[in-house]
């Protein structure tokens, strides 16, 4: 379970361009459930996802991951928590160009110090799970939108995270591919993973897979 207590995030604090991205957000997210953060652009969904995923620290408030308070952890420990607990799927997929799909999948696991052969085997297994085994040697820029997205999901799963975070995952996909994405999420949910998605796409938040919808507006949780 993830618990947020009065979390606030202010960018450029004290400057003329100060921006309150998230204000007084309190929320608890159940484990093994699919939660959607819904709201228009600029409502604070991405910032809240970043805070939940330990990518950025809140300006105020506390976050509990299970029974552990993680807000005050030093950067190194926070990175370790991020690497072990969360898998990220970004809006633009953010694959690294110029290297193969297989290498992209392996990236999050490189610093773990796993034997290269074993790691490669796991990455190939994930690509095969998403019907991408024949694309393993393809450069990231050669992949179609759907393939790139599945590679991004495989990369998010390489460290076997218990929580999957996806930020506007269907923003660059057509309806068919968006549907396929939700099917993959359903499969991962069945494996017992917690899934948190930020989206304003009806294909996502109206899906039967969703256990809970959290609506945001102007940096605040409204529902």
């Amino acid at each position: 379970m993830i618990v947020l207590e009065s979390v606030k995030k202010v960018f450029n604090q004290g400057r003329p361009n100060e921006l309150v991205a998230v204000a007084d957000a309190s929320l608890s997210i159940d484990a093994s459930k699919v939660t959607v953060l819904k709201g228009p652009s600029g409502s604070g969904k991405t910032t809240l996802l970043s805070i939940i995923g330990c990518m950025t620290r809140p300006t105020a408030g506390r976050i509990h991951l299970g029974d552990r308070e993680i807000t005050s952890l030093p950067e190194r420990f926070l990175t370790a928590v991020r690497g072990e607990t969360f898998g990220f799927i970004f809006q633009q997929f953010n694959l690294i160009r110029g290297i193969t799909a297989l290498e992209n999948v392996m990236i999050p696991a490189y610093p773990k110090g796993e034997r290269y052969g074993i790691l490669k085997g796991r990455a190939m297994g994930l690509l095969a799970m998403f019907n991408l085994a024949d694309k393993s040697a393809s450069k990231a820029e050669w992949l179609s939108g759907g393939e790139a997205q599945r590679v991004a999901i495989a990369r998010a799963l390489i460290n076997n995270p218990s929580i999957l975070i996806a930020d506007e995952p269907t923003a660059h996909l057509d309806t068919k591919l968006s549907g396929e994405f939700m099917e993959i999420m359903a499969g991962l949910h069945r494996q017992g993973r917690t899934i948190i998605i930020a989206s304003h796409d009806p294909v996502v938040y109206e899906s039967s897979l969703i256990n809970r919808t959290v609506e945001m507006r102007d940096g605040r949780i409204v529902q």
């Binding site: 950067e75 990175t79 690497g83 990220f88 953010n94 610093p111």
Partner: peptide, 15 residues
């Protein structure tokens, strides 16, 4: 951007 991706996917600053 690449450094950002690496960090976001779990790399430490030291890595």
């Amino acid at each position: 951007k690449e450094i950002g991706i690496l960090k976001a996917t779990g790399w430490e600053t030291a890595d």
